[in-house]
Amino acid sequence: MKPYPLKFKPEMKERVWGGRALEQFGLELPEGPIGEGWMIGDHPNGTTKVINGELAGLGLDEIREKYGSSVFGAKGYSANSRFPLLIKLLDCNDDLSVQVHPGNDYDKLPPGELGKTEMWYVLNAKPGAKIIYGLKPGATRESFAEAIADNRIMDSLQEVEASAGDSFYIPAGTVHALCAGVLVAEIQQNSDTTYRLYDYDRPGLDGKPRELHIEDSLEVTAYDNSGATRMATEVSRPNEWLRLASSPYFTVEKGVTKGGWALTSMPDSFTILVICDGSGTLEWSGGSIGLERGNCFLLPADLGDYSLNGEATVLRCYLP
């Protein structure tokens, strides 16, 4: 097979806090409040399938089995393991639960599950939109547990404003919550494990309160410094990458294309491209494909030379 950029049919997830904003990307949504579009993923709770080219109809798990390191690269492929990342678009029509994710070393992880370090890039934010991002300075496990027991958890949390173009790096152990009015691209470890601390006493989709995970949350929370960082991501010059997040699990960069931008795939890692704004074309030796806002592509490690043409804001993600 001659390598080419892979585009997938998203797996849509109904969430109590979701809405219909993902329709603006030309995505087909089922009925109900859709909070998450899993754009590229290989997880027991959702595996995306290719919709373009020779591999159309194959799931990401089948591509792993058939093509291994030629697509994923030496860093991205190992026998009997899933694709290492999960790429999402999130429509936060309402506040998400206050939550925290475990690291890989937490001994109560479900069998086969990874920890969850992630990052957000804000695609759009309504005026006054906020994000809960970490504990206030001086919080300890004892003071945090007491605040939870007294129904004062919000007193322990930091709130920050969110604007389009902001980037948030969220290592495992960071207490956080996306709030109403933000539309986000999320790059994360391939995990679907979330521990909820607080859910505003609202019913879930089944009309019953959603489960909280207080003890697990208290166990995995980083009380001193989780390593979380945030930044406004102004790109000073076109056709150059700005580093947004570096972790042991992924590197994420932002670039703004203008005209033609010649690039090369990385031989030891796949590359993920997320089109945040604008339009253009992605061209390689075997063809070209249009770029539109919300598109996500997996570039095989053996793709070789390619170019981004037009005017678009792009996230590039790869394994460190």
Score class of each variant (00 low, 15 high):
203 P>Y: 07
203 P>A: 12
204 G>H: 00
204 G>F: 04
204 G>Y: 03
204 G>K: 07
204 G>I: 05
205 L>C: 08
205 L>A: 08
205 L>Q: 09
205 L>T: 10
206 D>G: 13
206 D>W: 06
206 D>N: 12
206 D>Q: 08
206 D>I: 07
207 G>P: 08
207 G>F: 01
209 P>V: 09
209 P>T: 10
209 P>N: 10
210 R>W: 04
211 E>I: 08
211 E>N: 11
211 E>F: 06
211 E>K: 09
211 E>A: 15
212 L>N: 00
212 L>G: 05
213 H>V: 04
213 H>C: 03
213 H>G: 05
214 I>Y: 01
214 I>A: 00
215 E>S: 06
215 E>H: 01
215 E>N: 07
215 E>R: 08
216 D>F: 00
216 D>Q: 10
216 D>R: 01
217 S>H: 05
217 S>G: 15
217 S>K: 02
217 S>Y: 05
218 L>V: 10
219 E>S: 05
219 E>I: 04
219 E>V: 09
220 V>S: 02
220 V>L: 05
221 T>S: 04
222 A>R: 12
222 A>H: 13
222 A>D: 13
222 A>T: 08
222 A>Y: 07
223 Y>E: 09
223 Y>V: 03
223 Y>I: 00
223 Y>W: 08
224 D>H: 13
225 N>M: 07
225 N>T: 03
226 S>W: 02
226 S>I: 00
227 G>F: 01
227 G>M: 08
227 G>C: 10
228 A>K: 11
229 T>V: 14
229 T>S: 11
232 A>K: 11
232 A>D: 15
232 A>S: 15
233 T>L: 02
234 E>Q: 14
234 E>T: 14
235 V>P: 06
235 V>K: 01
235 V>R: 00
235 V>I: 13
237 R>W: 07
237 R>G: 12
238 P>Q: 09
238 P>L: 07
238 P>Y: 04
238 P>H: 06
239 N>H: 09
239 N>A: 13
239 N>M: 07
240 E>C: 06
240 E>R: 01
240 E>D: 14
240 E>K: 09
241 W>C: 03
241 W>N: 01
241 W>Y: 11
241 W>G: 00
242 L>T: 14
